[in-house]
Design a protein around this nucleic acid. Structure first.
Lengths: 101, 101
DNA sequence: CACTTATATGAATATTTATTCATATGTTTT
DNA sequence: AAAACATATGAATAAATATTCATATAAGTG
């Protein structure tokens, strides 16, 4: 058994904010789709069969918390994953749900 | 760069459900408090300065998704963490928020 | 410079959900 | 068995938030 983790009240707040991001299927789909590649808003919307506006709103959330990065390419905005341990975090959760009986 | 992670639609749903649990400060406080020890509902309520009922409701959520385990000890119900990678998952999130500039 | 294409954004709506209150269930004690 | 204590639970309320619709901003095109 490892030692007690010290987490401050402020960190609890930040941490819950952070995990809340992963608690929405649309955002997970976006992150999953962007993993290993980059894609513009329209492509994402089509691939996920959702309205451009909904995708755009969620991309804003993901960008704010620095999980995705955006660059402009002509008319398009190209999004990609911005954080290296996103995959790790996803895998950790997957392990949990996959080992259920 | 590691390989593309394959996640099914159903897993996306389960995964978002799972992360949603960590997306609430009260539940994070409970998990953090229970880390390395066990505690009954009343103690948790007092320690977190919240109503017994609120704690109980959240413990039910945590129990349903098998993040905490409960055993009865006389009048009390004693709760403890049920999953080994809870700490890992918390640490992973902490790493992310702590490395922000 | 109008026109089209791509994305962002604000307001409105609908849905989810955390907390509280009141009360029920379950356990021990006298 | 009644009273006291600990926890669980259902209903109600309040707050958060995902999506849609309409429209604004921005960049390329004829």
């Amino acid at each position: 058994m490892s030692d007690k983790i010290k987490i401050s009240e402020q960190e609890i707040e930040e941490l819950s904010q952070f995990y809340k991001i992963f608690g929405d299927p649309t955002r997970l789909r976006i992150l999953h789709t962007l993993y290993g590649t980059e894609m513009c808003v329209g492509e994402l919307a089509e691939k996920l069969s959702m309205e451009q506006s909904a995708i755009s709103h969620q991309l804003r959330v993901l960008k704010q918390i620095k999980l995705v990065a955006a660059r402009r390419d002509g008319k398009q905005m190209v999004y990609s994953l911005a954080d290296d341990h996103i995959a790790q975090i996803l895998m950790m959760g997957l392990e949990h749900i996959r080992e259920e009986d």
